[in-house]
Design a protein around this nucleic acid. Structure first.
Length: 843
RNA sequence: GCCCUCGUGGUGAAAUUGGUAGACACAAAGGACUUAAAAUCCUUGCCCUUUUGGGAGUGCCAGUUCGAGUCUGGCCGAGGGCACCA
């Protein structure tokens, strides 16, 4: 068997693809995009899987005649660069650029059909200049605001920490106890789009349902009403507003609970007891266990709230730890019988529990004790609300009554909060704003953009490095002396519009050339990890809608028409006798099949297969695999073993098998090239071969369209067996070569180097088109039909397609086996399904 | 606690959407070629029977149907998302 040198042909074809572009003069466009990588230094198997799947789609669509856009870029701002820079005293920019060069070299080894002329990098001022323009556009439209929020403050580092930098309530670097500090920060008002973001999810037919439900839950729309409760007491407070989804349980009202941050709290600020309580609340807020335990604690005020539906009923007002300030109005009315939290609270403080809803199968004496009743039923003990059906009429009718009496009004609430985009970091896009001494805000004039990051900054200083860049901070605009904003943008902002920039990456007059944007957008197929199901995808959807408001010529309001979320790449984990993680390279099998350490020869414990991670050392380096097996084999294996949306197990045996198979294809190609033609050709055999082959084209086409790439791979194996079989039959060389070259065309998206090399050897010139499906041949074929007796399959026979029942009955009755079984039996009924099954029901 | 998804051989998985369960591949065992190894090719795959055959069988229990991996109800198990959202 001859072996092909993959490295030679890979170099050759990759070079030729750099010159050649995919663009076609076609009306049909296809924008294929994979989530761009963070330039961490080296590509990992997750990238290989992501970009291989994308490349199959891009190459397939191109062969189908689409004009394909398939770009690549770098999500290049972010904390790791800053950390690496601090540790090694480097410039984050240089560190990032070095990583990009390295990763680009590795990605090119995979033979992806990417147009590198469109490459963008978010840390490039040519990119972030336009991001700053968009920020100002959003600001002018009222989509940007400043608000005070709590942040994780590290008192030693004098900096704000991201949630993942807080470990057990302490700073990851300083180990100091993290404080809750209020800071004024920039926000994108994404919550203004709550309704639209929810509504438009239904348009996204080619998105996984899973992602849509996750977004739906995240947006969290709920229907209810707001109610003003009258307050009695010795404080100047008339009413407190609450939001509720269960106004129908108003007669079960037994306390009113406020968040400790509610405006009423200002009257208690000097009360030492209240202060103690508030401290207690902020403590339980940070530790996860206390939330899980869910202990409800409260602080009783001297205020009373009046039930709006019954003036005679007064209930106490509490501050309670389970009431959130940033949802609803930071105040809830407590109905213990029909809300578990309220019940826990009421039981702790001995508050009244009045049952006002009974399940359908219980009588009016039904009473709630330890478990709140939240299911459907009938309203009881509630005067004029009695007998309403819960929930279908009770809620709406109660709201009607409240509205009529001017006690409350219908209200829709969302959980989605505004997006805080301020980061007190150096390595990010500067926010193009300035302040005067009075606290007024001024956007930087667009002509002065970009606001560049200052260079030669000491990143080891305390606090935000930009804050200490005195010269950089001071500016003059229209003669006014101002100070620059020193916050930079969350890196999610960078990735919220890069797909728009790819449509015209070198456009200088603005973020995008509107004609090109409208031609290419939306992204037809977006591919990436499911970990971005909520934030990145939601922010990008927000951006598209916001950009549309800045420019009424923008036609799309959704950025990603199709979304595919691929699974992770996993590998077995290994631990040595000392319970330390060991990498796959350090491990081997001895003669009796035990797993041992290569050097120490000690026993290795093989653990579960888990997502490749540095910490567990179960990483396989893609480049070393490409060096051993070639890019095509790596691509082939990563596609072959599991459905693309599920996790895949990496195995060296698997990639080795892929390598062997590709060598077999190479030899099949050589074998047919060197085959001496057959003299007595059978037209019938050729037809049979052509029809079977044609069937596979149809099958694989559908499989690719449905992302069942692992099944497509399985079918390629079957085609290989098919061609191998007919190679030894009465089939002409012309017929064989014709099918073989179609086979190679099918292989192009999967293993482009090998397929192109084989096609070149075959002397086929017009190679970049997907094989045509001949519809006429599909009809002629034979089919296999199952013969069942009483629903059990007894025999399978081959018949002509589309035969009628009588015909099939007479054929099947001729079968000896069936005749035997049917002897002395009475046929009660025959069930016949064309081309599939015939079932005799006998007695 | 709430929401979502998934349970098929030793392993990864297929199954035209209610119609031949286990395609395709990995691993294992046996065999062929070879002095030998590698490479390559073939066979086997749960239970009973020497074979021909037959039987059970898609997490468990019921149901609908001529027919259920697929549909319905209940249970068990695994994974993911959310976190007191009033």
């Amino acid at each position: 068997m001859e072996r092909v040198n993959f490295h030679l042909i890979e170099k050759k074809w990759q070079k030729s693809w750099l010159k050649k572009k995919n663009y076609k003069d076609s009306k049909k466009k296809f924008y294929c995009l994979e989530m761009f990588p963070y330039p961490s230094g080296k590509i990992h198997m997750g990238h290989v899987r992501n970009y291989t799947i994308g490349d199959v789609v891009a190459r397939y669509k191109s062969m189908k005649g689409y004009n394909v856009l398939h770009p690549m870029g770098w999500d290049a701002f972010g904390l790791p660069a800053e950390n690496a820079a601090r540790e090694n005293n480097l410039d984050p920019k240089k560190w990032t650029e070095k990583n990009i060069t390295e990763m680009k070299r590795q990605l090119k080894m995979l033979g992806l059909s990417i147009d590198w002329d469109l490459e963008i990098s978010t840390c490039d001022e040519k990119y972030y200049k336009h991001q700053q323009e968009l920020f100002i556009d959003f600001y002018n439209l009222g989509l940007v605001s400043r608000k005070e929020t709590y942040v994780n403050w590290d008192p030693v580092e004098q900096t704000v920490l991201a949630n993942e930098q807080v470990i057990d309530g302490k700073g990851w670097r300083s180990n100091a106890t993290v404080q809750r500090k209020k800071l004024s920060q920039w926000f994108f008002n994404i919550s203004k789009f709550s309704e639209e973001l929810l509504e438009d999810l239904s348009e996204l037919k080619n998105w996984p349902n899973k992602v849509k439900t996750m977004q739906k839950n995240w947006i969290g729309k709920s229907f209810g009403c707001e109610i003003d409760f009258k307050i009695e007491g010795d404080l100047p407070i008339d009413t407190i507003k609450c939001f509720t989804t269960r106004p129908d349980t108003l007669f079960g009202f037994s306390f009113l609970a406020l968040s400790v941050d509610h405006s009423v709290s200002k009257h208690f600020i000097k009360n030492p007891e209240f202060k103690k309580f508030k401290d207690e609340c902020s403590k339980t807020g940070t530790t996860e266990e206390s939330i899980a335990q869910g202990e409800k604690i409260g602080f009783k005020t001297n205020l009373f709230a009046i039930n709006p539906l019954d003036e005679n009923e007064k209930v106490p007002v509490y501050f309670a730890n389970f009431v959130l300030m940033d949802y609803g109005f930071g105040a809830v009315f407590g109905c213990p019988a029909h809300d578990q939290r309220d019940l826990d609270f009421a039981n702790k403080y001995n508050l009244k529990v009045k049952t006002v809803v009974k399940p359908l199968d219980k009588n009016d004496n039904f009473k709630v004790h330890k478990e709140a009743y939240t299911g459907p039923g009938i309203v009881i003990n509630s005067k004029f609300l009695n007998d309403f059906k819960v929930p279908e009429e009770s809620i709406v009718k109660t709201i009607e009554i409240l509205e009529k009496r001017k006690l409350g009004k219908k209200k829709i609430n969302f959980r989605l909060k505004d997006w805080g985009v301020s980061r007190q970091r150096y390595w990010g896009c500067p926010i193009p704003m300035a302040h005067d001494k009075k606290g007024n805000i001024f956007p930087i004039p667009k002509k002065d953009l970009p606001v560049r990051l200052p260079e030669n900054i000491d990143l080891n200083c305390k606090g935000n490095p930009l804050d200490s860049a005195k010269k950089w901070k001071e500016i003059k605009i229209d003669g006014k002396e101002l100070t620059r904003e020193t916050d930079t943008l969350d890196t999610f902002v960078d990735s919220s519009w890069y797909f728009m920039r790819f449509c015209s990456p070198n456009f200088k007059e603005g973020p995008f050339d509107i004609n090109k944007l409208n031609y290419w957008m939306p992204v037809d197929q977006y591919i990436g990890g499911v970990e971005h199901a909520i934030l990145h995808l939601l922010y990008s959807r927000f951006f598209m809608k916001a950009v549309k408001l800045t420019n009424n010529k923008v036609k799309d309001s959704e950025p990603f028409k199709g979304l595919f979320t691929q699974g992770m790449v996993c590998h077995e984990t290994y631990k040595d006798v000392n319970n330390k993680w060991v990498s796959p390279e350090e491990v081997e099998k001895d003669k009796s099949g035990n797993v041992i350490h290569k050097i120490t020869k000690t026993k290795i414990v093989v653990g579960a297969s888990e997502a490749m991670s540095k910490s567990k050392k179960n990483i396989i380096d893609p480049e070393s695999m490409i060096k051993i097996y070639g890019a095509d084999a790596v691509r082939w294996f990563i596609l072959s073993d599991s459905p693309p949306d599920k996790d895949v197990q990496w195995s060296n045996q698997g990639v080795n098998a892929a390598y062997k198979f590709l060598q077999k294809i190479w030899n099949l190609n050589l074998g047919i090239l060197g085959r001496s033609d057959v003299k007595n050709i059978s037209k019938e055999t050729e037809d049979e071969f052509n029809n079977l082959f044609n069937n596979y084209i149809l099958k694989i086409t559908n499989l690719i369209e449905n992302f069942q790439l692992n099944v497509a791979v399985a079918n390629v194996y079957e085609i290989y067996h098919l061609i191998n079989k007919y190679m030894n039959q009465k089939v002409s060389n012309t017929c064989l070569k014709n099918n073989l070259s179609n086979f190679m065309s099918i292989l192009i998206p999967f293993t482009p180097h090998l397929a192109n090399e084989c096609l070149e050897k075959l002397g086929v010139s017009k190679i970049e088109t997907w094989p045509e499906i001949r519809k006429d041949s599909l009809k002629k074929q034979k089919t296999k039909i199952a013969i069942q007796i009483n629903g059990k399959t007894r025999e399978v026979i081959e018949i002509e397609k589309s035969l009628k029942e009588e015909k099939v009955v007479s054929i099947t009755k001729k079968s000896e086996k069936i005749r035997k079984i049917l002897t002395n039996k009475k046929i009660m009924r025959i069930i016949f399904v064309k081309d599939k099954i015939i079932n005799y029901l006998v007695k």
